[in-house]
Amino acid sequence: MLKILKYSFFDLTRSSWSYVYFLFYLLLGFVLLFLNNDLSNAVITLMNVIIMLVPLIGTIFGVMYYYNSREFTDLLLAQPVKRSSIFLGQYFGVALSLSLSLILGLGIPFAAYGLFKSAVIWDFSMLLVIGIFLTLIFSALAFNIAISTENKIKGFGYAILLWLFLAVIYDGLFLLSLIYFQEYPLDKFSLIASMFNPIDLSRILILLKLDISALLGYTGAVFKDFFGTSKGLIASLMVLLLWVIIPILNIARVIRKKDF
């Protein structure tokens, strides 16, 4: 698998898309820091970007890479290589190169700005960790979609729909159900509902850093326990990890039965 990963990764590092992605983050980082002159503002804007764009780019890139390397995959399938190694290798290649673009693209401007001397470094590292998680999750979801959809156009369509659903629609439905059932105790429900959406989960992790004061304004004991202690952080990270592992296992499961 490591060999496939290596080749996928090198293949991607030559693709102009990786550079576009990298340059985009680089530009964003510099613009945020040097036009804004305010680290906290930059971190908040960055959070919005990471929560929206990282999943989108992860999904599109994942689907695109899978479809683009179909013939390459066929070539590999005839080689004495384990099937799961081929796909997981490609998947990690994509996820790794995207993560690297993210880390370098944002890391360089922040380092240039003197981030390491600032207290914001923890918020920033949290953002990067979450960005990496989201990259891993959404490229895995994209691979899942692409593997089970032969038609490229359909595959792209499903991928965009998935992103739209998790990034926007889910929260709308979530809010509606909260308002609709507001007579009932909802704190458990809302925590559980957040676990089912990796974007919400990541957002909560960031809230734990940025908005803890507002979160503690809520009176419910479950919330208090969750946000007020390290439980929230640990639970959220664990569930995010599950969000990475389950789609990857599913890739391995589906390709075992798949015809090429």
Partner: peptide
């Protein structure tokens, strides 16, 4: 094995 369509990773 020689596959029918010889389409390789274009960046290599």
């Amino acid at each position: 094995y020689l596959p029918q369509i010889a389409n390789f990773p274009g960046n290599l």
